[in-house]
Simulated scan of single mutants.
Amino acid sequence: MILAQALDATYWSFLGRGVGAILLYAVIGTLMMLIGFWAIDLTTPGKLPAMVRAGLPNAVLITAAGMVSMAFIIVTAVYGSVGSLLQGVVSSLVFGLVGIIAQVAAVRLLEWVTGIDIGEVIQAEEPRAAARVVAAAHLALGLIVAVAVF
């Protein structure tokens, strides 16, 4: 009771807004991660979720690197948001989505330039060196796009 009396109404309002913002950004971040996964799946030959569930090592490695790179982009989009909560949410969504598109396009371009047959690599049952190149490209380009977003 003494603690509640020591903290005035502005504190409780601040606390409520902060908790609300955390929950809102968590939902937005989760949605953007799902969109990022969908973008990787859409641009990758075959059914990526099935290949990951089957434990195909190259599919798992490339998907994991892609998801981490999406997280870089989303984190910087949220961190760099400014203004009111609504402005921050809108800018996070826009910058995050544009960043995801740019990152996926850049990785696919790199695969094309290097001549990597991503469909063959990702469906192989044994680890392939090319999968490490694609995973590294996801991480590197994710960092580059994340910095551009920020």
Rank of each mutant, 00 (worst) to 15 (best):
Ala9His: 10
Ala64Asp: 02
Ala135Trp: 00
Gly115Lys: 13
Ala129Cys: 01
Val75Gly: 09
Pro49Cys: 01
Ala105His: 03
Met70Leu: 08
Ala77Asn: 08
Met67Asp: 06
Phe72Ser: 00
Trp38Ile: 07
Ala146Val: 06
Ser81Met: 04
Ala64Tyr: 05
Gln103Tyr: 03
Val147Glu: 07
Leu61Trp: 06
Lys47Asp: 12
Leu85Cys: 08
Leu15Thr: 07
Ala140Ser: 14
Leu85Ser: 10
Phe14Gln: 15
Gly18Met: 05
Met33His: 06
Leu34Cys: 08
Met33Gly: 12
Ile74Gly: 02
Ala21Glu: 08
Val134Ile: 15
Thr76Glu: 11
Arg132Trp: 11
Met32Trp: 04
Trp38Ser: 09
Ile22Cys: 13
Val98Met: 15
Trp38Glu: 05
Arg53Glu: 15
Ala105Asn: 04
Gly142Tyr: 01
Ala64Val: 08
Val149Tyr: 00
Val147Asn: 06
Ile144Phe: 13
Arg53Pro: 00
Gly88Ile: 09
Glu111Asp: 14
Arg128Pro: 09
Ala6Ile: 06
Asp117Ser: 10
Thr114Met: 14
Leu86Tyr: 12
Ile28Phe: 04
Leu7Gly: 01
Ser81Lys: 01
Met67Trp: 11
Glu120Asn: 08
Ala136Pro: 04
Val134Phe: 08
Met70Gly: 05
Lys47Thr: 10
Arg108Phe: 07
Val98Asp: 12
Lys47Met: 10
Leu86Lys: 14
Met51His: 06
Val104Ser: 03
Ala146Leu: 06
Val113Gly: 02
Asp117Met: 11
